[in-house]
Amino acid sequence: MPLPRTAPGTLKWWVIGSIGIAIGVALAIWFGLSATVGLPTWQVTGYKVVDDDSVRVDFEVHSPGGEDLTCTVQALAGDFAVVGSTDVPVELAGADSTRTSVALRTTSRAVTGDVKTCVVAP
C-alpha cells in the first residue's frame, strides 16, 4: 500500500515552516550561549548555622578570566527572609577558581546560607 501524497501546493509551506523552525532554534541557542559564556559561576559547598546570631557559608567560585570578584552572601530564615547579608571580596590571583568561607552575622536565627550573586570587582 503506497503512502498518501500531500495535497498539491503544500510541500512549499512544509519546507518554509521547517526552515523557519530551524532558524528559530538556532537563534535561541545563540542567545542562550551569548548570555552565559564568560560569566562567573558559583556553588555553595556547605553551610553551618553556628548559633542564633551567625552562620558560616562555604562556597566555590569560578571566573573564566581569573578576575577578582565580589560576592554577595546571604543568610535566610525559614520564611526565606534575609536575616543577614554581606559583600565578600574574592581574590583569584589569576586562577580560574577558588574556595571561600565566610562567617555571617544575623539578626535572628538563620536556617540556611546562600550566595546571591558574584560580579567582577571594580
Score class of each variant (00 low, 15 high):
residue 6 T to W: 06
residue 106 T to G: 03
residue 44 V to R: 14
residue 82 V to F: 02
residue 62 H to W: 09
residue 42 W to K: 01
residue 74 Q to T: 04
residue 85 S to T: 15
residue 14 W to E: 05
residue 1 M to N: 05
residue 107 T to D: 04
residue 16 I to L: 14
residue 92 L to I: 09
residue 81 A to D: 09
residue 8 P to R: 09
residue 119 V to T: 14
residue 17 G to A: 14
residue 105 R to C: 03
residue 50 V to D: 14
residue 105 R to T: 13
residue 48 K to G: 05
residue 87 D to M: 13
residue 3 L to T: 07
residue 56 R to D: 11
residue 26 A to F: 11
residue 51 D to T: 02
residue 47 Y to M: 01
residue 8 P to V: 08
residue 108 S to L: 02
residue 43 Q to K: 15
residue 56 R to W: 00
residue 46 G to N: 06
residue 11 L to M: 01
residue 82 V to S: 09
residue 84 G to S: 06
residue 6 T to S: 00
residue 14 W to T: 06
residue 10 T to Y: 06
residue 30 W to F: 14
residue 34 S to G: 07
residue 97 S to M: 09
residue 55 V to L: 10
residue 26 A to K: 01
residue 39 L to W: 00
residue 33 L to W: 10
residue 6 T to F: 03
residue 64 P to I: 03
residue 34 S to M: 10
residue 75 A to I: 04
residue 25 V to K: 00
residue 30 W to R: 10
residue 34 S to A: 14
residue 92 L to R: 08
residue 48 K to W: 02
residue 80 F to V: 04
residue 96 D to F: 10
residue 81 A to G: 09
residue 62 H to P: 04
residue 59 F to W: 02
residue 100 T to K: 14
residue 103 A to W: 06
residue 66 G to I: 07
residue 7 A to P: 02
residue 58 D to I: 00
residue 104 L to W: 02
residue 21 I to A: 15
residue 114 D to I: 13
residue 68 D to C: 04
residue 108 S to V: 08
residue 57 V to L: 03
residue 29 I to K: 05
residue 93 A to T: 05
residue 46 G to A: 04
residue 69 L to F: 06
residue 106 T to E: 06
residue 76 L to G: 01
residue 62 H to N: 14
residue 75 A to K: 01
residue 89 P to K: 07
residue 44 V to W: 05
residue 13 W to H: 08
residue 48 K to E: 14
residue 27 L to H: 03
residue 48 K to D: 10
residue 112 T to Q: 12
residue 24 G to I: 04
residue 11 L to I: 04
residue 23 I to T: 11
residue 58 D to T: 08
residue 72 T to M: 10
residue 60 E to Q: 15
residue 73 V to C: 07
residue 120 V to W: 03
residue 26 A to Q: 11
residue 59 F to M: 07
residue 106 T to S: 01
residue 100 T to F: 13
residue 116 K to C: 02
residue 101 S to H: 00
residue 104 L to D: 01
residue 87 D to Y: 07
residue 17 G to N: 04
residue 24 G to F: 07
residue 95 A to L: 11
residue 99 R to C: 03
residue 89 P to M: 06
residue 67 E to Q: 14
residue 24 G to S: 14
residue 97 S to K: 14
residue 7 A to E: 11
residue 90 V to Q: 09
residue 88 V to E: 12
residue 45 T to K: 09
residue 118 C to A: 13
residue 100 T to S: 15
residue 9 G to A: 07
residue 115 V to R: 09
residue 98 T to F: 03
residue 75 A to R: 05
residue 1 M to Y: 06
residue 93 A to I: 02
residue 24 G to Y: 00
residue 76 L to Y: 03
residue 111 V to T: 13
residue 67 E to C: 05
residue 64 P to L: 05
residue 1 M to L: 11
residue 50 V to Q: 10
residue 82 V to N: 08
residue 4 P to I: 08
residue 56 R to A: 13
residue 120 V to C: 01
residue 24 G to A: 15
residue 5 R to Y: 00
residue 79 D to K: 02
